[in-house]
Write a protein that binds this DNA or RNA. Sequence first.
DNA 1: GTTGAGCGTT
Length: 127
Amino acid sequence: MFIIRRSLLINPAFSWRGFCSPPINNKLFVGGLSWSVDEKSLKDAFSSYGEVTEVRIMYDKDTGRTRGFGFVHFSKADEAQCAKDAMDGKAFLGRPLRISFALDKVRGASVVVPRFSSVGDAAERDN
DNA sequence: GTTGAGCGTT
């Protein structure tokens, strides 16, 4: 019987570094970026491992410089996993990269007020 | 001319 649950072995969701990694998605968190790294630089670097659909680097509104981290969106989660496994820990523009799967956060998702339309429980004051 | 772990609209 060499039949093993190969599904769990080939399944990336069960072969992370232990179990301290977030769920897999096509969004990658790229940290440890150099201060001179641009979105096009990251996209050009990650486009070799997959189809990059979106690249977002966080800039500082005060200094206008990069915060040193960004996000890379891939067309497929498999490409993102490949790019992560390939670029994670590697040096980029003189600084080691810290790549990780991004959290399922979206703009507006952090603060959302569920308003019930059928709530007549004294919640409607000036509707 | 600076700094260095992180998780999103600068």
